[in-house]
């Protein structure tokens, strides 16, 4: 570990060296595991989360004093140098009983530097008192009890820094994924009253929002977890399509777009795609290999069981499963949603 850290520092002589311990940044006050944000640190929520083997995530933004984020309608917001996006991954020991406590596994930081974004990975200790910098990733067995009361065990994988970029990539440059209008435009509980997250930040002086910003008209992904509570989406008339496209945007669209690593496939699953062929409808695979599962097309309207998209979401094998990284278990609810969406498509 010491060698690794020293190596990293040597590699970046001209930048602020990453801190060895998460606690050294001072993001939280009190015991670290309680995640009570310090000054200039505030939580954020997204509409459509990325599935990561049922891990829970606690997300925060840290801004340098007096600095703001700048709104952008369809790309990631602009962040001032020194800003940090903080994402903590944890599991409740028993998913149905959060009161029985949780195990925090890792904290991922995206730090905005002069040159661009930098990713750092911290692994929490068993005592849950702090987390230590890790460059090359890690893998260890982990167990918890899922929402259905069933014991689950996986080989938990903390990514190495290249793997971070495997998803966080736009034209080969590192970008944040969740910090977009469509993900952040949602109602949150702000100071004990419901308010739009972006409007609240604007008032707090954390975000530079255009004067004519209208939350109802601005881009917004459906909250696929709670479709009934998700406000109507101007871009999609029926709620099922809105949910499915939000799911695909958040779980696939970061690679599967014209500027992402999966541009090679010609299959684009970001929310802006309007061409059915490029979404995979009756589209033959390009380099899927055995990932095709002996199916002919990405999406066969009306037939989820004949669609490669569903096959790869259900499969857990490396080389077949999608997304390639960050998932080992099948996301049953997500698969069900996509199947329902394909089922109601007209051939």
């Amino acid at each position: 570990m010491l060698m690794v850290v020293t190596g990293w520092q040597v590699a970046l002589p001209d930048e602020a060296a990453p801190k060895n311990l998460l606690s050294e940044y001072g993001f939280f006050k009190g015991p670290l595991a309680n995640m009570q944000p310090a000054e200039q640190v505030f939580p954020y929520e997204v509409n459509a989360p990325l599935f990561s083997d049922y891990a829970e995530k606690a997300r925060f933004i840290a801004l340098p004093a007096g600095q703001k984020m700048t709104y952008h309608p369809d790309q990631a917001f602009e962040f001032p140098v020194g800003a940090v996006l903080i994402k903590n991954f944890y599991f409740y020991h028993e998913a149905a009983h959060p009161e029985k406590g949780r195990r925090i596994l890792e904290t991922r930081l995206l730090i905005k530097e002069e040159k661009g974004w930098k990713a750092l990975e911290y692994l929490w200790n068993d005592e849950q008192t702090d987390a230590v910098l890790e460059v090359a990733g890690a893998s260890f067995p982990f167990q918890w009890v899922d929402a259905g009361g069933k014991s689950q065990s996986i080989q938990y994988i903390a990514p190495n820094l290249n793997q971070c970029k495997g998803c966080h990539s736009y034209d080969g440059k590192f970008v944040p994924l969740g910090a977009t209008a469509r993900q952040l435009n949602r109602a949150v509980d702000a100071s004990n009253h419901a308010e739009n997250q972006l409007v609240y930040w604007n008032k707090a002086g954390w975000l530079d929002l255009p004067a004519d910003f209208d939350a109802a008209a601005a881009p917004r992904l459906a909250d696929y977890r709670h479709p009934a509570e998700s406000p109507a989406n101007p871009a999609f008339s029926d709620p099922l399509t809105a949910s499915a496209r939000a799911y695909l945007d958040a779980n696939c669209g970061h690679c599967h777009n014209a500027h992402g690593p999966a541009s090679t496939s010609g299959m684009f699953l970001d929310i802006f795609e309007t061409n059915p062929e490029r979404l995979g409808v009756n589209k033959t695979p390009v380099a899927a290999g055995r990932g095709s599962g002996n199916r002919r097309f990405g999406i066969v309207p009306g037939k989820p069981q004949e669609s490669i998209l569903v096959y790869r979401m259900e499969n857990g094998e490396p080389g077949v499963r999608m997304p390639e990284l960050g998932r080992q278990l099948e996301h049953r609810e997500g698969v069900e949603l996509i199947k329902n969406w394909i089922r109601q498509m007209h051939p």
Partner: peptide
């Protein structure tokens, strides 16, 4: 015994 990643060796960007 690969458990992670879709390739053996990958070079990007």
């Amino acid at each position: 015994n690969q458990t992670q990643g879709a390739e053996g060796f990958k070079v990007t960007n």
